[in-house]
Amino acid sequence: MSNEIIGLPSWFETPPGQYLLAWEQARFDEAVADAFGFHALQLGLPALPALRANRMPHQWLAVDAPLPAGAPARPALVTDFAALPFPASSLDLVLLPHALECSADPHATLREVERVLVPEGRVVICGFNPASLWGLRHGRPRGYPSTSAATGGEPIGYWRLRDWLRLLSFEVESGRFGCYRPAVRSSRWLERWRWMDAVGQRWWPIFGAAYCLSAVKRVHGMRLIEPVWSASPAIAAAPVSVANRRQPAAISTRQENKVSV
C-alpha cells in the first residue's frame, strides 16, 4: 500500500486509529480534570474532545484549515498555530493533540503556546513516538497505517520535545507512553494483541506508539503571595475608670465644718 498522506481525521477512522484515539482521550481526561482557570484552548484534531473533562468556563477549538461540511465538530476559529489571535499571558490551558507533528514549524508553534499561556499555565501534548513499532515504519512505502501517512511529517521524539520545553522555561510534570500493540489492519487482529499493552507497560514502557506529556510554564523570579482574605480584628480598648476628684474635696470641707462647730 502506498504511503500517501491521508490526514489524521481519516487515519483515526482505521482500527489502529480508534485504538490510539481511545488511549489519548483517557490521557487528556486525566490531565485536564484538575486544571483550573478561565480560558482553555485545543489546537487541532476535532475528532478528539480533549477538553470534555475540564470545567473552565471559556473553551475554544482551533483548527488550521476549514473543516468540510457536515463535520461533527464546530471549531471556534481557523488560524495559523504559529500566530494565535490571543494576547500574551491570556490562556490558562493549551492542548496540542498531534498539533506539533502536523505543523510546518513546530518550534514556532511551541513558542506561540508559551507566549499566550499565563505564568503557571499548563500545556498538554500528545504525539507519535518514533522509538516504537509504529515509529520504525515511518517513511516506508508499505505497511498500514504509518505515522507519516497520518501526519504528513516526522514524529517528534519524547526526549527531544522535553528539551524544547526546557528551553522555553517549561517544567515537565508528567509523561506517559501507551499503545504497544502492532498497527495491524483489522480490529480482530488488533484485539488478539491486547496482551501487549500490559506487558509493554511493565517491561518496555518507553517504546509505546504514542506519548502524552504535561508541562507548566514557570516564570523565574516570580513569587505567589497568599492574599489576606480577612482583616485582623481591632483590639478594643479596655475601659478605664476616671477618679472623681471633687468628691474627696467635698468630704474634706464637711469635715472642716464639723471641726469648726
Rank of each mutant, 00 (worst) to 15 (best):
P182G: 15
T151H: 12
L168M: 15
P155Y: 10
R160N: 15
G178Y: 10
S187P: 05
F177L: 06
L168Y: 01
E173Q: 13
R160Y: 07
A183N: 13
S169G: 00
G157T: 03
C179R: 05
E154C: 10
R162G: 10
G152H: 07
Y158E: 12
R160G: 14
P155F: 01
R166L: 07
E173V: 07
W159K: 00
G152E: 00
S169Q: 14
Y180N: 14
R176H: 11
G157D: 13
E171Q: 07
C179S: 13
F170Q: 05
G153V: 05
S169D: 09
G178A: 00
V172W: 07
G157A: 11
V172S: 02
V184Q: 01
E171L: 12
W159D: 14
S187R: 07
R181F: 05
G152D: 02
L161C: 12
E154T: 08
S174Q: 03
G178L: 02
Y158W: 03
C179Q: 09
E173T: 05
L161G: 04
W159N: 10
P182L: 12
S187D: 08
R181T: 11
L161I: 10
F177M: 05
G178E: 01
A150D: 02
L168A: 03
A150R: 02
I156K: 09
C179M: 10
P155S: 09
G175P: 00
T151Q: 04
R162F: 00
E154W: 14
L165R: 04
P182Y: 07
A183F: 14
R162H: 08
G175D: 00
A149M: 13
L161K: 08
R185H: 12
G157Q: 00
D163M: 07
S169H: 14
A183G: 13
F177H: 12
E173D: 14
E173Y: 02
R160Q: 13
V172L: 12
F177Q: 05
R166T: 15
Y158D: 04
R166C: 14
R166I: 03
S148Y: 10
G153H: 07
V184P: 07
R185T: 11
S187G: 09
F177C: 04
G153C: 08
I156A: 01
R185N: 00
T151Y: 01
I156P: 10
W159L: 12
R166E: 15
W159T: 07
P182M: 12
S186K: 04
Y158P: 06
R176A: 15
W159Y: 09
S174P: 00
S187L: 03
F177G: 06
W164F: 14
Y158L: 11
L167V: 05
L165Q: 06
P182V: 08
Y158F: 15
A150N: 06
S174W: 06
L167C: 08
L165I: 00
A183H: 10
Y180C: 11
P182N: 13
L165P: 07
